[in-house]
Design a protein around this nucleic acid. Structure first.
Lengths: 218, 218
DNA sequence: ACAAAAAAACAAGCATGAATGTTTGTTTGG
DNA sequence: CCAAACAAACATTCATGCTTGTTTTTTTGT
């Protein structure tokens, strides 16, 4: 047990080092010597725990998958069931190294059968868990499952798309906050329960907007 | 002139081959021998036109940038100024190899200073052109430039995020159509010109709601 | 107009550097 | 003492850029 524990700790250190390397150098440039150096051990030692580099990559993918699930569960479980808080929490998770590394691997899997074989089943698993969690989280949405799925896909796609754009430097940082607010608002509007309240408030606001429009005309 | 033309054609063939290779094998596995084979010439011949592999990659990035600009201009120029049609056209563009290749390079640039030096200025250029085009395209939006920028960022981020998710196999194909409709609707709602009509309709409905609310009081 | 010369286009082989997995050797903890 | 953990050196593979050699096209001198 003691032996197994030490070994497990070392393997965990290697997986962590792999994630850091993928973030720093990209998956393509993550070579065994760099991982070993990052983990603070020799390449020989590393290959004692993982016979092939590919085995370590596989272990890393599994670890990232588990972190991804934990991250989403944390975003939905610990906080109040307020969509705004959940959006912020999920966005916070997307800033972590785990997401960057995961996306590097996901893109690499597009052209690597070996990676795809590992990743694809996990993607399916994640999607199922994601929706299952969402259904439990928004009971008021039970009536219209289709709409719930659209809302979840919207949030996920938009937030992840933003995260990718940010770390490829193709998004103006100034736009992050307005976009997050947009997602919050959208979730709020789409929610069939909250929608009722929203419409009521909107009625009040409309009056003010109308008045302003009128005065601006002259 | 004739000599230059032949050379230019060959270089274009090489750039095309590079794009195809990046799509097929990924940027990391796009090696000079594969490009030469894909272009139907020897590696030696290829290195005659581009002294280094990096020079060919640079030329490819520039070409992809130009295609990207042309694609967006086509989406906004040729069609009616109907947001729905524009969304469809932009989505169609994102299915092309150019987008896949561009994203491969953009992600690689995250960890490659050389690539970043080439890509970053082009990203800036693209963003500027994108917004300039958008401003001309929606004159009714002039009053609220901030809101226009949010709307454009939303569309772009969501559509590109979807495209990435689709080609990494992490999105249910069934969701594409509902999501596209969502973007269309959102653009429609956010447009200040159409919003007036929308609000007007809403006001009518509100009246009914209000009346009902009032009568419910008693 | 046409052969010779020059230049460009193309092809193939070689040498270097780098990454991988293997092997062999050394240390350490139970 | 022995088995796991760690380290170092080696052989192989492979992508790159360079060099050298061949073909095709263009230019040029008469």
């Amino acid at each position: 047990m003691e032996r197994n524990l030490k070994s497990a700790q070392t393997r965990a250190r290697l997986v962590d080092a792999t994630i850091r390397c993928i973030v720093k150098f990209g998956y393509a440039n993550t070579i065994t010597s760099k991982i070993a150096a990052e983990a603070g051990m020799s390449r020989g030692a590393m290959l004692h725990h993982y016979e092939f580099g590919s085995a370590l990559i596989k272990a890393t993918i599994v670890e990232l998958h588990e972190r991804r699930i934990r991250a989403f569960r944390r975003a939905s479980n610990t906080v109040s069931h307020d969509p705004a808080t959940m959006v912020r929490e999920y966005w916070r998770q997307l800033q972590k190294p785990a997401f960057v590394a995961f996306h590097e691997l996901a893109l690499a899997a597009r052209t690597s059968k070996d990676l795809a074989r590992i990743l694809h089943p996990l993607e399916i698993d994640y999607r199922e868990r994601f929706m299952k969690e969402a259904v439990e989280l928004f009971p008021e949405w039970h009536a219209d499952r289709k709409s719930l799925q659209v809302a979840m896909t919207l949030s996920q796609t938009l937030l992840e798309g933003m995260a990718i754009k940010v770390h490829t430097g193709s998004m103006d940082q100034k736009m992050i906050e307005p976009m997050l607010r947009l997602v919050e608002r959208e979730l709020y509007v789409m929610n069939p329960d909250l929608k009722i309240r929203h419409d009521a408030e909107a009625t009040v606001l409309k009056g003010a907007a109308k008045a302003r429009t009128k005065s601006d005309r002259y």
